[in-house]
């Protein structure tokens, strides 16, 4: 069972190739070049795209454009070579890489994407209020280190691997595989224009 996993929701995107749960390789990439990473990983394993059995795609939250690049790639692959796809939350994968941690992704606009009560949410870092001693990881934890540490949270050094979204964790978290169109983006924000109309 050859699985291609990728997550393009964050600027440091990730792509991994696994066989029966064993990691064959993983690469960091830019979102728009995720297929170049996939191609290199497959070549390293002596395989081609047509050999893939299934796809795991990060669905966000993160950069809207990044999320869409990942899902458009997943849907294109699924359509052309008839593969099942599973979607995995970028927050869940980030947390999986640092067990027991609270994942915090920079959401720009002075907000972060994180889990509150186990559910994905977008909030201001000041409102996050992690329990003292909570390990906070991710681009949002790095950016708002001062706020989080002031609240008593622990944030690993900026250069720590724990802050990076790694696609190998998506593969482990993948639940049910099915049609690509059922795998939906997790934006957490409606477009500004819609918000303006609601007012």
């Amino acid at each position: 069972m050859l699985t291609l996993a990728f997550d393009t929701a964050t600027p440091r995107s990730s792509c991994a190739l696994l066989r029966d749960g064993d990691l064959l390789g993983e690469r960091e990439t830019k979102a728009a070049a995720v297929l170049a990473a996939a191609d290199a990983l497959l070549a390293g394993a002596g395989q081609v795209a047509a050999d893939l059995d299934r796809i795991v795609c990060g669905v966000g939250p993160g950069s809207f454009t990044g999320i869409r690049i990942g899902l458009a790639v997943a849907r294109g692959l699924a359509l052309a070579i008839d593969l099942p796809v599973a979607g995995v939350s970028t927050l869940a994968a980030l947390q999986e890489g640092a067990p027991g941690s609270l994942p915090v992704i920079d959401g720009s606009r002075k907000e972060v994407f994180t889990l509150t009560g186990g559910e994905p949410a977008v909030i201001r870092p000041e409102d996050l209020k992690p329990a003292p001693g909570t390990l906070c990881v991710g681009s949002g934890a790095v950016r708002y280190r001062a706020v989080l540490e002031a609240a008593g949270a622990d944030v690993p050094p900026d250069s720590s691997e724990l802050h990076l979204v790694r696609a190998r964790f998506h593969a482990g978290l993948a639940g049910e595989f099915g049609p690509a169109e059922l795998v939906e983006p997790l934006y957490l924000r409606i477009p500004d224009a819609e918000k303006a109309l609601e007012r």
Binding site: L35, A72, V73, A74, G76, L77, A80
Partner: peptide, 20 residues
Amino acid sequence: LIGALLVGLSAAKAIAWSRG
């Protein structure tokens, strides 16, 4: 529109690459 273009470009690359 860059975000709009990237949806089509990403899908096109995926289709072309996976079919060689």
